[in-house]
Design a protein around this nucleic acid. Structure first.
Length: 395
DNA sequence: GTAGCAATAT
DNA sequence: GATATTGCTA
């Protein structure tokens, strides 16, 4: 949800906000089939707020909010997009992820520490509050953008995406960061809103690049800088896919509209869809036979849990009935949408990828128990981060 | 203008 | 090798 809405909450007061939510729900109820998830989410939001109201009324803060933030934020309202810069320059998180010895400036470290504190142990409530707001965005912006604000962002980029509140964070040119970073970064990392950061980015862009050769500059201007799909964004993508009946029937434009992400282009969605299709089709098409006979039963990722396709497939067969399958996958991972005609299976290789990325997440949670065998993760081990959207319906 | 695929860049 | 962007075609 946009921060403006959050502000509204405070202005309105709780009960007013609940009222507003209920009105919203009424509107949504007009289109129960089109907006099943929204209905669900708004309902949950109302409930949560009511609980807050009755319970910890004195502290209307982000504790309760954070619990439902993902639900409420992920589908309500247009989203200001923010891309994660995966370039090396970019983020302290890169260091965090790869434990790189590549020391950036000290400022990065100090900043990093600060964020890490708020992220890892949610003890500091003040931090928590601010992080909550940050965590709701879809495009992962450069977490270090406060200082990186002075770094290069192509002016062209800003012109292209010049919509208000739609400033993307382009990736830096010189990335040494693996794409996997995106997966990590996408887990609700703290980041700035795109607008402020991006707007301040403009200043030094040209000057810093002028030092370099002009050839490269031209190239940069010609070619759009790479952007990364955050987890939240991908989640939206999947949700949109579901509502549209799967990757096969959905079109980029439809998806884009459903995702309701400000600044997201058709091309980007198209590209993502293409990749998604590649990922989801390849296993089933090429290895359909072998997949069946494989001793290792293919698993699919549902939420943070690997489940058997049968279990998985049973859930999402209805696309618009409101029985939404909660497909949540780390960014870069293409959890098959259940509405695909063949329940997509994951080959060993594919699955290994899933596994690895999950392991990485575990690693960051100091929870390396996913070694080897495929098993469903105990919800307890990964409850807080990105499984929040799964809490409403069990499978 | 849009979607899909392939080539190319990162 | 994976992923995002761009170009081409229908």
């Amino acid at each position: 949800m946009s921060s403006t809405l959050t502000m509204q909450r405070f202005k309105m007061g709780f009960s007013d906000y609940i009222q507003a939510l209920e009105q919203e729900r009424l509107k949504i109820q007009v289109f129960p089939k089109e907006l099943p998830l929204s209905l669900e989410l708004v309902t949950q939001a109302i409930e949560t707020c009511r609980q807050q109201l009755s319970g910890t009324t004195t502290e209307y803060n982000l504790n309760g909010q954070s619990e439902c933030s993902e639900q409420t934020t992920s589908t309500e309202g247009p989203v200001l997009e923010e891309f994660i810069p995966i370039k090396k320059r970019a983020s302290p998180y890169c260091e965090q992820v790869y434990d790189d010895d590549d020391e950036e400036e000290d400022e990065h470290h100090s900043h990093h520490k600060q964020q890490k504190i708020s992220m890892d142990d949610n003890k500091n409530s003040d931090k928590k509050k601010s992080d909550w707001l940050r965590s709701v965005q879809l495009w992962n912006s450069d977490p270090s953008s406060e200082e990186d604000a002075t770094r290069k962002v192509s002016v062209l980029e800003l012109k292209r995406n010049g919509s208000v509140g739609g400033a993307f964070h382009p990736f830096q040119k010189d990335d040494r960061v693996n794409n996997k970073t995106c997966e990590f970064l996408s887990k609700g990392q703290p980041s700035l809103t795109g607008v402020a950061a991006a707007s301040s980015n403009v200043a030094t862009t040209v000057t810093s690049n002028n030092a370099g050769n002009t050839k490269r500059e031209d190239k940069e201007e010609k070619r759009k800088q790479r952007r990364c799909w955050s987890q939240e964004l991908h989640k939206r993508f999947l949700q949109a896919l579901q509502q549209l009946g799967g990757a096969d029937s959905a079109t980029p434009k439809q998806i884009r509209e459903l995702m309701n992400v400000d600044g997201l282009t058709n091309d980007e969605v198209k590209s993502h869809l293409q990749k998604y299709r590649l990922h989801t089709r390849r296993p089933s098409s090429t290895n359909n036979e072998s997949a069946k006979s494989q001793t290792a039963t293919p698993f699919v990722l549902v939420g943070n849990i690997f489940v058997q396709p049968t279990e998985y497939g049973g859930v999402g067969s209805s696309t618009t009935s409101g029985e939404m399958t909660k497909v949540v996958a780390p960014s870069g991972i293409y959890a098959p949408v259940a509405t695909h005609p063949p329940v997509t299976t994951i080959k060993k290789l594919e699955f290994k990828k899933f596994e690895n990325s999950i392991s990485e997440e575990r690693g960051n949670n100091n929870n390396n128990n996913s070694e080897g065998a495929v098993h469903s993760n105990s919800p307890a081990s990964s409850s807080s981060t990105h499984t929040t959207t799964n809490n409403s319906r069990g499978f």
